Deep mutational scan, measured.
Amino acid sequence: MQIFVKTLTGKTITLEVEPSDTIENVKAKIQDKEGIPPDQQRSIFAGKQLEDGRTLSDYNIQKESTLHLVLR
């Protein structure tokens, strides 16, 4: 499925993911596309910070959902 990741600069990245993917996985995909190390990424969805060990389905993130990426 496709999800979108919006950065603070307003750029939107499209990722191909599975509901079973962990947040860690997703951060690795963002690193592949953007070169941002996962330890600098904070992902926010529906106002909640997403934890690395959880999966997209844990957070009820579905296709075409938009995550927000904040850098630390």
Rank of each mutant, 00 (worst) to 15 (best):
M1C: 05
M1L: 05
M1S: 03
M1D: 01
Q2S: 09
Q2G: 03
I3A: 00
I3P: 00
F4A: 04
F4S: 03
F4I: 04
F4M: 04
V5A: 03
K6L: 11
K6E: 06
K6Q: 09
K6M: 10
K6T: 10
K6A: 07
T7G: 05
T7F: 15
L8W: 15
L8Y: 13
L8K: 10
L8V: 12
L8A: 13
T9M: 08
G10E: 03
G10W: 03
G10Q: 02
G10P: 00
G10M: 03
G10H: 03
K11Y: 11
K11H: 10
K11Q: 09
K11L: 10
K11P: 04
T12E: 04
T12Y: 10
T12A: 03
T12G: 03
T12L: 13
T12I: 15
I13D: 01
I13Q: 01
I13C: 03
T14P: 06
T14V: 13
E16A: 08
E16W: 14
E16C: 12
V17L: 02
V17N: 00
V17Q: 00
E18H: 14
E18Q: 12
E18A: 12
E18Y: 14
E18M: 14
S20W: 13
S20P: 04
S20M: 09
S20G: 11
D21R: 01
D21V: 02
D21E: 08
D21S: 06
T22S: 07
T22R: 05
T22L: 09
T22A: 03
I23E: 04
I23D: 01
I23K: 01
I23A: 01
E24D: 07
E24V: 06
N25E: 12
N25I: 14
N25W: 10
N25Y: 11
N25G: 08
N25Q: 14
V26A: 01
V26N: 01
V26M: 06
V26H: 01
K27V: 08
K27C: 11
K27R: 08
A28Y: 12
K29M: 13
K29H: 05
K29R: 09
I30M: 05
I30F: 11
Q31T: 09
Q31K: 09
D32T: 09
D32R: 11
D32L: 13
D32P: 02
D32M: 13
K33H: 10
K33L: 14
K33Y: 11
K33S: 10
K33P: 06
E34N: 08
G35C: 06
G35V: 04
G35M: 05
I36G: 09
I36C: 08
I36V: 10
I36H: 09
I36R: 05
P37R: 10
P37N: 09
P38H: 12
P38C: 08
P38G: 10
P38D: 10
P38I: 15
D39M: 09
D39I: 09
Q40F: 09
Q40W: 11
Q40P: 07
Q40C: 12
Q40R: 10
Q40L: 11
Q40K: 10
Q40I: 11
R42P: 12
R42C: 15
S43K: 06
S43C: 15
S43G: 12
I44P: 03
F45E: 02
F45Q: 04
A46E: 14
A46K: 13
A46L: 13
A46P: 02
G47F: 05
G47H: 07
G47V: 03
G47W: 05
K48F: 11
K48I: 14
K48E: 12
L50Q: 01
L50K: 00
L50M: 06
E51W: 04
E51S: 06
E51H: 09
E51M: 10
E51I: 09
D52I: 05
D52E: 07
G53K: 12
G53L: 09
G53A: 09
G53H: 14
R54L: 11
R54F: 12
R54D: 04
R54V: 07
R54I: 07
R54M: 13
T55H: 05
T55P: 10
T55Q: 06
T55G: 01
L56T: 00
L56G: 01
S57T: 06
S57A: 14
D58V: 03
D58Y: 15
D58I: 04
Y59H: 03
Y59T: 00
Y59D: 01
Y59R: 02
N60P: 01
I61G: 01
I61D: 01
I61P: 00
Q62R: 09
Q62C: 04
Q62A: 09
K63Y: 06
K63D: 13
K63G: 13
E64K: 06
E64F: 15
E64A: 09
E64G: 15
S65E: 08
S65H: 06
S65M: 11
S65K: 02
S65Q: 11
T66W: 07
L67D: 00
L67Y: 01
L67V: 07
L67T: 00
H68I: 15
L69C: 05
L69F: 05
L69A: 02
L69T: 02
L69Q: 05
L69Y: 03
V70D: 05
V70C: 07
L71M: 11
L71I: 12
L71Q: 09
R72W: 13
R72D: 11
R72V: 14
